[in-house]
């Protein structure tokens, strides 16, 4: 398949992920829309093409693994894994119901395809570092991808994990940094500034950094992930500049952390997302 065709398919997948993310959250009526939607394109690129996984054999030792360290983005992961075939997507519409397999924050004991449990920010990146180290020690194939949020990078543990990964030269580890510019209480610049920026910080910690200004477009994300595959002896960070809530009409402007829109606003958002998907499908390649 040529690259143009591949990118078109990934754009379709990203639009499907967005629509299903909304449907998953809408089933409960409220949830972490913003931080789920900002990551939809990266999820589509990872699971749609880059990652080597098999939903029929989810514990295959040489698989690529993904850890959602910003665990509150659960819905975008549930949408992606459902579309990928880990379970019928309708199952994820039980989000946050009693005894659901789809809790607010990702849990490897409940959800097929979820590798490690997250929700206490900063912990997922350490777990991912350990998984990458475990693959090295046992000479297993596959890489570990982990997504952290820019707000999450307030946590000191992120930087403990970063120094370890660089020191142990974990070149089978790639961290997606979702810089959507917002955290729960407001803009990250106002709540807790990141000095010279997260790209500079990961660079200073000894990581090879790829910065993607258009972090909600599949092609530059895909390009950066291909470059990351070539790096030896250092972990890689893909710093994505994204838009919180992108594709959710009620959250796109407010860039809110969690949302509980009215039924009318939900209907409007779903309709807009369906139109978006249909438009992408009809694009001429």
């Amino acid at each position: 398949m040529d690259k143009k065709q591949k990118m078109h398919e990934l754009r379709i997948f990203a639009a499907e992920v967005r629509l299903e993310t909304l449907k998953v959250i809408k089933a409960r009526g409220f949830g972490h829309v913003g931080g789920s939607m900002s990551l939809a394109d990266a999820m589509a690129v990872l699971y749609g093409d880059v990652m080597n996984v098999d939903p029929k054999n989810p514990t295959w030792p040489d698989r690529d693994e993904f850890v959602l360290s910003k665990g509150h983005g659960g819905p975008v992961m549930y949408a992606t894994l459902g579309l990928k075939g880990y379970y019928p997507i309708e199952e994820a519409y039980t989000l946050n119901q009693p005894h659901t397999k789809f809790p607010s924050h990702t849990d490897h004991l409940t959800t097929p395809g979820v590798e490690l449990t997250t929700g206490s920010l900063g912990q997922g990146i350490s777990e991912a570092v350990g998984a990458a180290l475990g693959k090295k020690v046992q000479k297993l194939g596959g890489r570990v991808y982990v997504a952290v949020g820019d707000g999450e990078c307030d946590e000191g543990q992120v930087w403990e994990a970063a120094e370890f990964a660089a020191h142990y030269k974990l070149d089978n580890l790639t961290c997606i940094v979702d810089v959507n510019g917002m955290q729960l209480d407001g803009p990250t610049d106002e709540i807790m500034g990141q000095g010279k920026g997260l790209a500079a910080k990961f660079d200073a910690f000894g990581w090879k950094v790829f910065e993607v200004e258009k972090g909600n477009e599949v092609e530059p994300i895909w390009d950066a992930l291909q470059e990351a595959l070539k790096v030896k002896d250092a972990p890689t960070a893909i710093v994505l500049h994204t838009h919180k809530g992108l594709g959710a009409t009620f959250a796109e402007v407010s860039m809110e952390h969690s949302s509980q829109p009215s039924p009318e606003k939900w209907a409007e958002a779903i309709e807009a997302s369906e139109k978006q998907l249909s438009d992408v499908r009809n694009e001429k390649v």
Binding site: L116, I125, S126, E127, A131, Q138, Q157
Partner: peptide, 15 residues
Amino acid sequence: ANAVGLSAGLASTGM
């Protein structure tokens, strides 16, 4: 904190 977190990740791969 990272030491304990990465220990969990190591364990997830069978260590």
